[in-house]
C-alpha cells in the first residue's frame, strides 16, 4: 500500500507540473546526450590510438639528387640506431605504385604523376613511436635527406580535433546539466509547495522522513531516467544518421563504433541521470522541507 501510495504521488506530481516536467526532461536529455557523445568519443579515440599507433612509421624522404654514398650513410645511420624496430626502403617505382593504389579512384590525378616526381624514402618503425624526436635528432642533418615526417604527428592533429570536440561536448553537457539541476531544484520546490499541507500533516503525525521525501525524490529520478532514455535515443539516431549516413566518408578514418559501446551508454546515462536528479532533489528538500 505504501509503495502504491508513493508511486501514485509521483505520477500526480509529475502531471500536476507537466510543463516543468517536460522542460526538466528535455534539458536532462540534451545534457546526457552530450555526455554520452563525449564518452563515446573518448572510447573511440582510445580505440583509434591503439589501432593506428601500431601501424605508424616515420618516413625519411630523400632528395632527388641523393648520391649512392649518401644513401648508404643514411641507411647505416638508421640501421645502427637503437630506437629503430624495423625499416624498409622504398624506391621511386615502389612509391609510385603505392601512390597509384592510394588514389585509385582518381585516375586523372594518378596519370599526371610519373615515377620521377615522387621521392624515394625509408619507412622506419620505431620501437616506441613516442621517441620520434630522439630518432629525428640522430639522423637529421645527414646530407641527402629532404624531410622527416612522423605520421604520429599527423594522427595527433586528428586526435586533437577529436579531443577538442570531446571537450566541447563535455562543456555543453556541463552547462546543460547545470540548467537541468536548477530545473530539478525548482520543480521540487514547486512540488513541495503545492503539497505543503500534506507535508505539514505528515510531519505532525510522525511519518518517517523517507516517506515524506520519497515521492519528491522519485519524481526527479523518473524525470532523470526518461531524460536518459531520450538521450540514448538521440545518440542512437545521431550514430545512424551522421556516422552511418551523411559522414560515412569519415568512417575510413574513424574506426567503427562498436554496438557494445553504444549500448553501454544506456546504463551509464540512466545511472548518471537518476543519481544526479535524486541528489539534487534530496538537497533541495533539505532546504525547503526541513523534515
Amino acid at each position: 500500500m505504501r509503495v502504491k501510495y508513493v508511486l501514485n504521488e509521483v505520477l500526480v506530481g509529475l502531471w500536476r507540473n507537466v510543463t516543468m516536467t517536460v522542460a526538466m526532461i528535455i534539458t536532462m536529455s540534451v545534457s546526457l546526450t552530450m555526455l554520452g557523445a563525449s564518452v563515446l568519443m573518448y572510447m573511440q579515440v582510445d580505440q583509434m590510438k591503439t589501432a593506428y599507433y601500431g601501424e605508424i612509421e616515420v618516413s625519411v624522404f630523400l632528395t632527388d639528387e641523393v648520391t649512392d654514398g649518401e644513401r648508404e650513410a643514411i641507411n647505416a645511420a638508421i640501421e645502427s640506431s637503437a630506437l629503430v624496430d624495423t625499416k624498409t626502403y622504398e624506391d621511386k617505382a615502389a612509391a609510385l605504385k603505392r601512390f597509384q593504389e592510394l588514389w585509385a579512384d582518381s585516375p586523372d590525378f594518378v596519370n599526371s604523376i610519373n615515377a620521377d616526381s615522387l621521392p624515394e624514402s625509408y619507412r622506419v618503425k620505431l620501437k616506441n613511436p613516442e621517441q620520434y624526436a630522439e630518432f629525428s635528432a640522430q639522423i637529421e642533418g645527414l646530407p641527402g635527406i629532404r624531410q622527416i615526417i612522423d605520421q604520429r604527428s599527423l594522427l595527433d592533429k586528428v586526435f586533437n580535433i577529436f579531443n577538442s570536440i570531446q571537450v566541447m561536448s563535455l562543456v555543453v553537457a556541463g552547462v546543460m546539466a547545470f540548467a537541468a539541476l536548477l530545473l530539478v531544484g525548482n520543480t521540487i520546490q514547486v512540488a513541495a509547495y503545492s503539497k505543503r499541507r500534506e507535508v505539514a500533516v505528515m510531519k505532525l503525525v510522525g511519518a518517517s522522513n523517507w516517506f515524506i521525501q520519497a515521492p519528491f525524490v522519485l519524481e526527479a529520478v523518473v524525470a532523470g531516467i526518461v531524460g536518459a532514455l531520450l538521450g540514448f535515443v538521440f545518440l542512437f539516431i545521431g550514430k545512424v544518421v551522421l556516422l552511418d549516413g551523411k559522414l560515412q566518408a569519415l568512417t575510413t578514418i574513424i574506426t567503427p563504433i562498436p554496438d557494445g559501446n553504444l549500448w553501454l551508454m544506456l546504463p551509464l546515462l540512466a545511472g548518471v541521470g537518476s543519481v544526479v536528479s535524486a541528489v539534487t532533489a534530496w538537497v533541495t528538500l533539505r532546504f525547503y522541507l526541513k523534515v
Binding site: 499541507r197 510522525g206 511519518a207 518517517s208
Partner: peptide
C-alpha cells in the same frame, strides 16, 4: 523524531485539515 511524534497527538487553532 518522526517515530517519537507518533506517541503525541496534536490539535491546533486552525484545524490543519486537508481540504
Amino acid at each position: 523524531v518522526p517515530h517519537f511524534r507518533r506517541s503525541i497527538g496534536c490539535v491546533f487553532q486552525d484545524f490543519r485539515l486537508l481540504p
